[in-house]
């Protein structure tokens, strides 16, 4: 059978054009990312100084720094992780190690996925209704952390589950063969192997939680507060909320622009750090586990 050379050439030409378009599209998307990053880094860099990071805001958010917002975000991240990490990991272990394949497992997974898909503003509504009003925590670090914790829960559960699933069954069988119980096997064999991946999940959920605005709008965040929090029942400022307020509804939006760029940059740096850390973790420990 002979293929006409023309048809073959046209086919190849079509392919080259299509591939070029696809490649360009992919690069375009990456370019968008770099434009956003570059824009904020370039404009924000001039606002960053030691004072900006460690001083209280002054003169209606046009001077001073964002120290209380940084502290607030750190506290919220810490609080939400204290809640979500243990529960999430336990839940992941239970799902992967103790539940048999079947209706129950599918239902639990379905619910976890549903929880992950609920918009963050709905978490905000829920947090306001349950923690702030019903349980009467008021607008507080406690209410905000719990709301953010619920939001991070599906991320922790799913990464835990995935990392446990990745552990080769031979390890488990080997451990059983040596007479270890199921609990011992999980504690001494399965968890140590999957720990790096579980921690990667933790890091990623920290990234997610630190940038969320909608869930803290009505549960903890405050525009301006003159002192740092004294207890978990205090309100705090938070980086993402701070950025939102000084860009859209501050008293002097134009003059606080440099502060906004600076705040955006701090948020971006957190995200970059989290991503780099997670990737480095994955690579470093990924190799180590394989070597064993």
């Amino acid at each position: 059978m002979k293929v006409s050379p023309d048809i073959a050439r046209i086919k190849r030409l079509k392919q080259s054009i299509a591939f070029a378009v696809f490649r360009l599209t992919s690069y375009l998307i990456v370019a968008v990312l770099f434009v956003i990053l570059a824009f904020i880094i370039v404009r924000g860099a001039s606002a960053i100084s030691w004072e900006f990071l460690t001083a209280m805001p002054a003169e209606g958010m046009t001077q001073g720094g964002i120290y209380p917002a940084i502290i607030g975000t750190l506290l919220l991240v810490l609080g939400s992780m204290l809640f979500a990490f243990p529960i999430g990991v336990l839940s992941g272990i239970y799902i992967n190690e103790y539940t048999k394949d079947g209706v129950l497992k599918r239902f639990i997974k379905l619910m976890t996925n549903n929880l992950a898909g609920i918009p963050s503003i709905v978490f905000g509504l829920f947090g306001m209704s349950l923690f702030v009003n019903t349980l009467d925590f008021g607008d507080s670090i406690l209410a905000g952390s719990l709301t953010l914790g619920l939001l991070a829960l599906p991320v922790v559960i799913r990464t835990t589950e995935e990392s446990l699933k990745a552990v080769d069954n031979n390890f488990r069988h080997g451990s059983y063969a040596l007479g270890a119980t199921k609990l011992q096997t999980i504690r001494r064999v399965v968890l140590p192997i999957s720990l790096p991946n579980i921690l990667t999940g933790l890091i990623l959920s920290i990234g997610r939680v630190s940038g969320e605005t909608a869930p803290i709008l009505f549960t903890v965040a405050v525009y301006s507060i003159s002192h740092l929090p004294h207890s978990i029942y205090d309100q705090v400022m938070a980086l993402p909320y701070h950025l939102y307020v000084i860009t859209t509804s501050g008293t002097n939006i134009e003059e606080s622009r440099p502060m906004a760029y600076g705040t955006a940059l701090v948020l971006i740096v957190i995200v970059l750090l989290v991503n780099l850390l997670a990737n480095a973790f994955r690579r470093y420990f990924g190799n180590k586990v394989k070597m064993n």
């Binding site: 630190s210 995200v271 991503n275």
Partner: peptide, 9 residues
């Protein structure tokens, strides 16, 4: 990973 408020900004 970029926070939505940064996209908004």
């Amino acid at each position: 990973g970029i926070p939505s408020v940064v996209y908004g900004f």
